[in-house]
């Protein structure tokens, strides 16, 4: 009888032990659930952080784009600075082209024998003269020296 009672108590104890284990397991699950809940509680912030990060990334992209535009502008400015020279070069090329064309036109012109220059003494410049009058000598004048 005693043995049976003892066996029954053992069985009860094991059963209790099993319940304890079950309870501990349940407790662990609750803890896990609470932890999950806590993580869920922080999730909106994470989402905001993600949004912030995405925004920052966009700004970085914008900045890089701006930097590229600045570089482009500087390059354009440099090109503008050299533009007058370019204009001059263009003008020179134009002149050269015109000169070449003129020379080509002369070369292409039918050759003719130049007339011999007139011989005999050539007159100097025609200098107008008038007699020197005595008044010329004493006329007021503003010549220096």
């Amino acid at each position: 009888m005693k043995a049976q009672e003892s066996k029954a108590r053992v069985a009860t104890a094991q059963e209790a032990k099993a319940r304890v284990a079950t309870a501990q397991e349940a407790k662990a699950r609750v803890a896990t659930a609470q932890e999950a809940k806590a993580r869920v509680a922080t999730a909106p912030d994470a989402k905001a952080r993600v949004a912030t990060a995405q925004d920052a990334k966009a700004r970085v992209a914008t900045a890089q784009d701006a930097k590229a535009r600045v570089a482009t502008a500087q390059e354009a400015k440099a090109r503008v600075a050299t533009a007058p020279d370019a204009d001059a070069r263009v003008a020179r090329r134009g002149l050269l082209k015109a000169a070449v064309a003129a020379v080509a036109a002369v070369i292409a012109r039918p050759r003719r024998v130049l007339a011999a220059p007139p011989r005999g003494p050539r007159p100097g410049p025609r200098i107008r003269t008038r007699p020197l009058a005595r008044e010329d000598l004493y006329r007021a004048h503003d010549r220096a020296g």
């Binding site: 410049p125 200098i127 007699p131 020197l132 220096a144």
Partner: peptide, 26 residues
């Protein structure tokens, strides 16, 4: 100061016909 004669061509300014001896005579 005398550019009207210093920078002029001979044919552009009326002159006196005054050879050296004539200058000395004056």
């Amino acid at each position: 100061q005398n550019w009207q004669i210093s920078q002029a061509n001979p044919e552009d300014v009326e002159a006196h016909d005054l050879p050296p001896d004539a200058v000395v005579e004056v």
